[in-house]
């Protein structure tokens, strides 16, 4: 069957004209830190230009209790909170953005879900691989295994984030999400065989509790990144976020999401 060679080629084809839509990304965390919001504008898919940052927006996060967290533009469309802030579990928040000559943008209210603890972070399933740089030499790869107890009384949605030497681990999966539909209330072992570490690297694992809306949004986003174009993919479509213009006249879609994440963290060094 080796003769059956498939083939992938980069092509240039005519695409529908760009809509240059406002795109927003913000995850308000439960950690006391500088919170961030990214505001940009989409560009034509094949356009040479990367996404266009929006630098002149007024950005605030508001809680149901009336607390207002203000943001200032730093660079490249990233806005940082003017003070350190920790989202409070159980509280509801929303994002409000004003851009010159545009109606105000608001997200839906998002609840900061209950934090779920990481019970145990260990290293497992290490196996030896041939070193591509030194023929004949072998090296060990370590994979994190995390135990956590899922709360039985609630529907829970999770996102996992990994750091390798303090850098976000984005390959091969930039989005790892889970719901508890199939293991509600259990002590869940998670093998992350897609995230390999070399010896002596620092492994940071973040377990983020997210809302059902955020989970659905990220799942669709993930599908759009990984399975498009395959026979087991679905037909691509708009991914609706939770942000919209506060105006009856402007119906433009707003891309992206404002979410809340209650974070548990654990760290280990990759060692046999």
């Amino acid at each position: 069957m080796s003769a059956l060679l498939s083939c992938e080629e980069v092509v240039i084809i005519e695409l529908p004209s760009a809509q240059n839509l406002i795109t927003i990304e913000s995850w308000l965390s439960s950690l006391n830190e500088t919170q961030t919001v990214r505001v940009s504008q989409s560009t034509g898919f094949s356009e040479e230009l990367q996404v266009r940052p929006v630098t002149n927006a007024e950005v605030v996060i508001q809680s149901r209790l009336g607390i207002i967290l203000r943001f200032s533009h730093t660079n490249n469309g990233i806005y940082a909170s003017n003070s350190m802030f920790a989202g409070e579990v159980g509280q509801e928040y929303r994002l409000r953005i004003s851009i010159e000559n545009e109606p105000e943008l608001r997200s839906d209210w998002e609840r900061m879900e209950d934090q779920v603890a990481i019970n145990n972070l260990t290293l497992v399933n290490s196996f030896e691989e041939n070193d591509p740089d030194n023929a004949g030499e072998q090296f060990t790869i370590f994979f994190p295994k995390v135990l956590r107890r899922d709360p039985a009384e609630s529907e829970n949605y999770y996102r996992w984030v990994f750091y390798k030497d303090r850098m976000k681990y984005t390959e091969p999966e930039s989005i790892t999400v889970q719901d508890d539909r199939l293991f509600n209330g259990s002590l869940i072992p998670n093998d992350f065989r897609a995230f390999g570490y070399n010896e002596e690297q620092e492994i940071i694992v973040e377990l983020q509790s997210i809302t059902k809306g955020a989970y659905n949004f990220l799942s669709l986003l993930k599908e759009q990144i990984t399975s498009l174009g395959t026979s087991n993919g679905t037909t691509p479509a708009n991914i609706m976020g939770n942000i919209s213009f506060q105006s009856d006249e402007v119906n433009d879609l707003v891309l992206g999401y404002f979410g809340t994440v209650a974070i548990s963290r654990d760290t280990v060094i990759a060692r046999p």
Partner: peptide, 24 residues
């Protein structure tokens, strides 16, 4: 097939944005 009109960045990923289903 459905072709994207735009691209945007979310997280660390570049995401294609699609308008109408089966537009090509």
């Amino acid at each position: 097939t459905t072709l994207p009109s735009d691209k945007y960045v979310f997280g660390s990923s570049l995401i294609p944005h699609f308008t109408q289903r089966n537009n090509s």
